[in-house]
Amino acid sequence: MPRPLALRLLEAAPLLLFLAVILLFGTQSAGFLTAANAAQILAQAAPTVIVAVGMTFVLLTAGVDLSVGALMFIGAGVAGHLAIAGYPLPVSIAVMVAIGVAGGGVNALLVSRFGLVPFVATLATLYIGRGLGRWITETRAMNLPESFLVIGASEPLGLPLPVWAAAAVAVAGQCVLSTTPFGRYLYALGADPEGARKAGLPTRRLIAAVYVISGACAGLGGLLALARLGAVSPRFGEFYEFDAITASVLGGTSLYGGRGRVLPDTVVGALLIKTIFSGLVSVQADPYLYPLITATIIFLAVAVDSARSRLAARLTRRVIRVDA
């Protein structure tokens, strides 16, 4: 049975919203619809996309990772020190990702081994991570040497390197989710944890894995954010957890687990948020409006999502009889 038009429209809602936003700002501001601005938005969105990919993995298991921003902060602090001390760039990169993995490992331990509720466990690591980060940076802004900005500045094939990195992570993430047993296990686990256990899936290891993946993505995302900014401020990485969750949910990932995709959904969600904020800047909107607008977007996303599932349930009902 071909999927009805209304359903397909609702399923494409994030994408349509994205196009509408582009059109809206394009007509409002002359500089908005330019290739340079597009590249700019993509580069801005790259760290969020990467963190959101990791977040989607966690959300699929009906968990959540609030610690990503804090992990970015610790990583940036340590990498900053290393860079200033003259260590070569690859060392800083490796250390940031390693710190993300380690922090994710702590979350994994708390959730899968000690059975803590993900929200609480990662809230704890969020606070610990923020504290640790402040201690490492001595609550001062750190300016990084020029060498660090190379990552953000180089443009292979006409697009900034971070954009390529984000694209690679997103494609890899989606491949893992849809084509490997591990990916399919995550969907099963998110839909019915007890059933997954009965089916003999390694549920603890799966749960542990998503937090490690999310941590690694936070490390990588932090690196890209750092390469863009060139400095570590005491507020580095703040609100990344919310951006990442919003991006995933906007794209259609369910907070109850078992539903969601990285490509195109989460990526579209992330681009949508960044485009809106970039657009607001370009039309010089009142900064006090930003939170209101964020709230509206989230509300819209949730409304569309529930309309979509209701319509899907009705339209894809089984055919019992063939009506003439």
Partner: peptide, 22 residues
């Protein structure tokens, strides 16, 4: 075959059949 159904609704029939041995 458990008394209570243990299939995963968000996966396809084939995926459910092969879950532990894709």
């Amino acid at each position: 075959v458990h008394q209570e159904l243990t299939l995963f609704g968000n996966l396809t029939i084939a995926e459910n059949l092969h879950l532990t041995r894709f």
